[in-house]
Amino acid sequence: MPTLRFTDNIQRHVECPTREVEGARVREVLDAYFHTNTRARSYVLDDQGRLREHMSIFINGEQLRDRTHLTDPVPADGVVDVIQALSGG
């Protein structure tokens, strides 16, 4: 099963421990995680289910391409990182 990890910065708002969850695409992996951690959903996704504007997701170190539908494939042993899209100095 893929492993889903979250930025440390989200933890003070809503606890998001690293977990292994089912899913072959990013959407499926996130849905599986948020099914048991409903509060975390709105911290990562917006009203329309898109990745929040200033969030980023990496799959095995590769940046997510489909921020709207989250269709990027996730290997069975993949690692998905949900981070803040930091920029600037």
């Binding site: 709105s42 911290y43 200033h54 803040q84």
Partner: peptide
């Protein structure tokens, strides 16, 4: 919260403690 979106909190003890409630969607 910028990155994490807009949240709404409520306190019933004058601000001593707060709990997150639903934000409009």
């Amino acid at each position: 919260h910028g990155h994490f979106g807009v949240k709404l909190h409520r306190s019933h003890d004058g601000g001593a403690t707060w709990a997150e409630i639903g934000a409009p969607m």
